[in-house]
């Protein structure tokens, strides 16, 4: 017979560790993106910085969850990074396209 307390603690523990491991994977990809942004040319750097804002935003959103670390202000930072980062990438890509 399955005990509810076991199932609850399994769900909490699995969610905590999965979010933590996913954040570590995001950090690894972010480090790779920073490396690429420092060695590439302008458009490559723009693409790498866009990737970095994505992984940083997702990691920040995950640590703002109450199940993880409950850092409240990280949620606003994550929303700003994800939304403004994408729009800024599009705008700067248009500027690079026009050669300005």
């Amino acid at each position: 017979m399955i005990d509810l307390s076991f199932l609850n603690s399994f769900a909490e523990s699995a969610f905590f560790w999965s979010a933590l491991i996913f954040s570590f994977a995001c950090s690894f990809t972010g480090l790779a993106a920073i490396r690429l942004s420092l060695k590439g040319e302008a458009v490559t750097s723009l693409m790498a910085v866009s990737t970095f804002t994505t992984v940083a935003g997702v990691s920040l959103f995950l640590i703002s969850l109450p199940e993880l670390f409950n850092v409240g202000f990280a949620r606003d930072t994550a929303i700003a990074l994800l939304v403004v980062g994408s729009i800024g990438t599009i705008i700067f890509a248009r500027l690079f396209r026009m050669g300005k």
Binding site: A42, A93, R94, F96, R97
Partner: peptide, 12 residues
């Protein structure tokens, strides 16, 4: 985003 990046790389 991806299309804008590829487009800008092509034209540059």
């Amino acid at each position: 985003t991806s299309n804008a990046l590829a487009n800008s790389y092509y034209y540059s």
